[in-house]
């Protein structure tokens, strides 16, 4: 009995240690962001020496952060909407054994996971579709994520067919079955899908850098990168003076960028874990 007791304590300590490792980088970031700018940073501290919100004030004062939030929120909401609709309408038929040409369509879909035309043709496409410098350039190309599609499809397969069959006998068509029978049973996978789409669009930066030119339409990640990486562009700066942002301002800007995820995440995580399981295990 005694040995087991020791093992429990050890486990407990180990788990706390793992949690600390997981949380510490975020804590350190937060601490830097609220430390007064004139404090010497090259001393190890667990808590800030003097608390000051001046870094946040400075980061927000630049005026870009607010605009970035707005653009990112628009992008995320549009992206989630499109992503949910197109993924579900594609995943549901693919989950049906009797779908005509199913193997071909699956192949058509999966192929896109491995081959793409490259960045130049993509850019030309966006330009010729007239999407350049609009939010649509950021959401339309990502409307279907094949990896997520497959997981949703696997989830749909796991729903007992008998439920749908009885609905069909009642005269429902496939659209009605999907909206009335299947979707209400799929809340957890929908929550998962929503979270994935939200996180993807919130975090995306590369496409915005390529497809958005107006400074009024910049997304949050682009602005954050500019603040954080400003120091590294020293050489690109050529004959002009270098621009280096102090660590505190960098930290405050990163905090503002990841803040919403960290705040919202604990509340919704219990939904998506269920969905993740259902989609990944069955199949």
């Amino acid at each position: 009995m005694k040995r087991i007791h020791f093992f429990d304590i050890f486990l407990f300590a180990l788990m706390i240690f793992i949690c600390l490792i997981m949380v510490y980088p975020f804590w350190n970031l937060f601490m830097n962001s609220i430390t007064a700018p004139d404090v010497n940073m090259s001393v190890l501290r667990l808590f800030p020496e003097r608390v000051s919100l001046s870094s946040y004030v400075k980061a927000i004062e630049s005026g870009d952060i607010g605009r970035g939030y707005l653009n990112t929120i628009v992008r995320t909401v549009l992206g989630i909407g499109l992503n949910l609709i197109l993924t579900v309408t594609l995943a549901y038929p693919l989950s049906k054994k009797h779908l005509p040409n199913k193997a071909f369509i699956t192949g058509f879909v999966v192929f896109t996971m491995y081959f793409n035309g490259g960045v130049v043709p993509n850019y030309l496409l966006i330009r010729s579709l007239g999407l350049y410098d609009t939010v649509w350039a950021l959401v339309l190309p990502h409307a279907v994520n094949v990896f997520h599609l497959i997981i949703v499809r696997n989830f749909f397969i796991s729903i007992p067919y008998s439920l749908e069959e009885s609905a069909m006998i009642d005269g429902c068509n496939e659209f009605q079955i999907l909206t009335r029978i299947v979707l209400p049973l799929s809340k957890s996978i929908m929550a998962t899908l929503l979270l994935w789409a939200a996180v993807f669009h919130w975090n995306a930066w590369f496409d915005a850098m390529i497809y958005i030119k107006s400074s009024e339409k910049q997304v949050l990640q682009t602005i954050m990168r500019r603040v954080v990486l400003g120091s590294m562009s020293g050489s690109a700066n050529g004959a002009f003076e270098e621009l280096v942002n102090p660590e505190n301002i960098k930290a405050a800007t990163i905090m503002l960028t990841v803040g919403p995820i960290i705040v919202v995440y604990p509340f919704i995580q219990r939904y998506f874990i269920k969905g993740q399981l259902a989609g990944a295990i069955k199949g």
């Binding site: 609709i85 197109l86 993924t87 309408t89 594609l90 549901y92 038929p93 693919l94 049906k96 779908l99 005509p100 369509i105 058509f108 879909v109 896109t112 081959f115 793409n116 035309g117 490259g118 130049v120 043709p121 993509n122 030309l124 496409l125 579709l129 339309l140 190309p141 409307a143 279907v144 094949v146 599609l149 068509n173 496939e174 659209f175 999907l178």
Partner: peptide, 23 residues
Amino acid sequence: NLLLMMLPGLLSLFVFSYLPMYG
């Protein structure tokens, strides 16, 4: 109906994944 349902998704893949493949 099933095929119709897939149309927007497949179209999106066609336009944004297959069209640029000429590259």
